[in-house]
Design a protein around this nucleic acid. Structure first.
Lengths: 199, 199
DNA sequence: AACTTATTCGACCTGAAAGTCAATCTCTAG
DNA sequence: CTAGAGATTGACTTTCAGGTCGAATAAGTT
């Protein structure tokens, strides 16, 4: 991966790195305190900047939220891609994917934000589209598993929403560095999910 | 149950009924749009009132959110109480309880709000305490099931958070009157949860 | 009818947080 | 070394939603 350190004199790279730092830092604050309980001043201060400087990197607070969402869905798209062709059947494939999702949340500090309603117009439409795309990808895998007999037959949508909900709820209670390690949680989630849906 | 219609001339009863209507209406709006995306003017309008009139029934917007939380946890406490002594083992007891929880969400229109961070001081402390109480009650049942052999042994907290997350996520996607009926969802959730945790 | 109390409202106040901008500091290319 | 682009800031404006208040209306009581 290319980091800012690789090209300390390339201003575009530096700019992109700093912009990313803003998004990341905000994402963490949004996850902990919620979007509306996090002011731009707070985001700025946590980076040692003034609020005005933030607007050198982003157009608006809403844009930050948008980028937070896109970042997660981008990583999820990657995870979906990475299980293509993997796994002997639908269930195995689903376990791999769900494990990857759980790792994103616990290891990479990403978080499914629920604040879609705070986005307007194009922003919201795009995020909803991306979310729909992921949901469909997961649902397709589940349906595949139902066909090949590895996953118990029932309404695929309800099945998917059940275990995706657990993922979202992670944001609320999981604290890195706590008693429960990320790997432990991810493993337990995969286990509980897979047993719940298996034939 | 006592309704406002029972005592149309009792002012205290009328007042309480109207106050409840405010809370309920707000709860629905909070669930759909989120707390911060719902203005007091909007809540008022949806009841055919002016904003000022709202403040005759509640002290602040935060109090409404608080009451929304309390309403849900109250109903959950009832559900916990109603399964006391029921069920042959931990798993059966858990299925009853979880089914009751799911019914609260789908049938009674209640919703676990995630916006705990928008509450301050005493309000937040109380809500967190109530949530903790429910979590402990559920965890105790799970631990009981692990002891009597009906539930697979693993970390109880992770186990509980997994299926409680699914419940919370319901708020985001479930729309009454849609393709999926409330009963259907509740049944599917109980099934998927119980298979996931059973020995 | 007169009086009291409950309920509702329009108009206003206020504070917090998003967003802007001209001025300033800091790099680095030449 | 210095000019000019890049980066950052303090101070300001703007907007909007929560909350207040006194007046007006409705309802109930005697």
């Amino acid at each position: 991966m290319t980091t800012n350190i690789d090209q300390p004199f390339n201003r575009e790279v530096q700019y992109a790195a700093k912009r990313l730092a803003v998004i990341r830092s905000a994402a963490g604050a949004f996850r902990r305190r919620g979007y509306h309980n996090t002011s731009m001043v707070l985001i700025a201060k946590s980076l040692g900047l003034s609020k005005a400087a933030l607007y050198y990197y982003v157009k608006s607070k809403e844009e930050i939220l948008y980028e937070c969402h896109i970042m997660v869905y981008g990583a999820m798209d990657e995870a979906v891609k990475s299980v293509r062709g993997q796994g002997e059947n639908g269930l195995e494939k689903l376990k791999l994917l769900y494990g990857a999702f759980a790792a994103l949340m616990t290891r990479d500090g990403l978080a499914l934000l629920a604040d879609v309603d705070s986005l307007k117009g194009e922003f919201q439409a795009t995020v909803l589209a991306r979310r729909g795309k992921i949901e469909r990808a997961v649902t397709r895998i589940v349906e595949g598993g139902m066909k090949d007999g590895s996953i118990k037959k029932s309404d695929p949508k309800v099945t998917v929403f059940f275990f995706m909900g657990a993922l979202n709820w992670l944001n609320v209670w999981y604290e890195p560095g706590g008693r429960l390690s990320g790997e432990m949680i991810a493993d337990a989630f995969v286990e509980q999910m897979s047993v719940g849906v298996a034939s």
